[in-house]
Simulated assay, not measured.
Amino acid sequence: MSGDSDLIKLYSARILELAADIPHHTRLEAPAVTVKKRSPLCGSTVTVDLTLEGGKVSAFGQDVKACALGQAAASVVGGAIMGCTPAQILQARDELKTMLKEDGPAPAAPFDGLQVLRPAVAYKNRHASILLTLDAASEAVSQLAQTQSA
Score class of each variant (00 low, 15 high):
Thr85Leu: 07
Gln88Met: 13
Arg14Val: 10
Lys65Ile: 10
Ala136Asp: 03
Ala20Met: 12
Ser5Met: 09
Glu102Gly: 02
His25Ala: 15
Leu52Asp: 14
Ala74Gln: 09
Lys65Pro: 03
Ala109Cys: 07
Ala106Lys: 10
Pro119Gln: 09
Val46Gln: 03
Leu50Ala: 00
Thr34Phe: 07
Ala19Ser: 15
Ser138Cys: 12
Val121Cys: 13
Thr98Pro: 04
Asp63Ile: 11
Glu17Lys: 04
Ala20Phe: 11
Ala109Asp: 11
Ile130Glu: 01
Leu117Pro: 01
Ala32His: 05
Pro107Glu: 08
Arg27Ile: 01
Phe60Ser: 06
Met82Ser: 11
Lys101Thr: 13
Leu117Ala: 01
Leu96Tyr: 04
Val46Met: 03
Leu52Pro: 14
Met82Trp: 05
His24Ser: 09
Ala20Arg: 15
Gln88Ile: 04
Thr45Tyr: 01
Leu7Asn: 07
Leu18Trp: 11
Leu16Thr: 05
Ala92Leu: 02
Gly61Arg: 02
His127Thr: 00
Arg38Glu: 14
Arg27Ala: 15
Gly54Phe: 09
Glu139Arg: 11
Gly70Asp: 02
Val57Ile: 12
Ala109Trp: 00
Asn125Tyr: 12
Val35His: 04
Leu18Pro: 12
Glu29Pro: 02
Ser58Thr: 08
Val77His: 04
Leu114Gly: 01
Pro23Trp: 15
Leu7His: 06
Gln146Cys: 02
Leu132Met: 05
Arg27Val: 01
Arg118His: 12
Ile22Met: 12
Ile22Cys: 11
Asp94Trp: 02
Val116Trp: 00
Met1Trp: 06
Ala150Phe: 06
Lys9Arg: 15
Ala80Ile: 00
Glu17His: 03
Glu102Met: 06
Leu52Cys: 15
Met99Val: 03
Glu29Asn: 11
Pro40Cys: 08
Ser129Asn: 01
Val48Thr: 06
Ala13Glu: 07
Glu53Pro: 00
Val46Lys: 00
Gly55Lys: 10
Val46Ile: 13
Lys9Trp: 07
Ser149Phe: 09
Lys101Ala: 13
Lys36Trp: 04
Arg14Asn: 10
Val46Tyr: 06
Met1Gln: 08
Gln115Met: 14
Asp6Phe: 14
Lys97Ser: 12
Val33Pro: 04
Thr147Gln: 15
Asp21Arg: 14
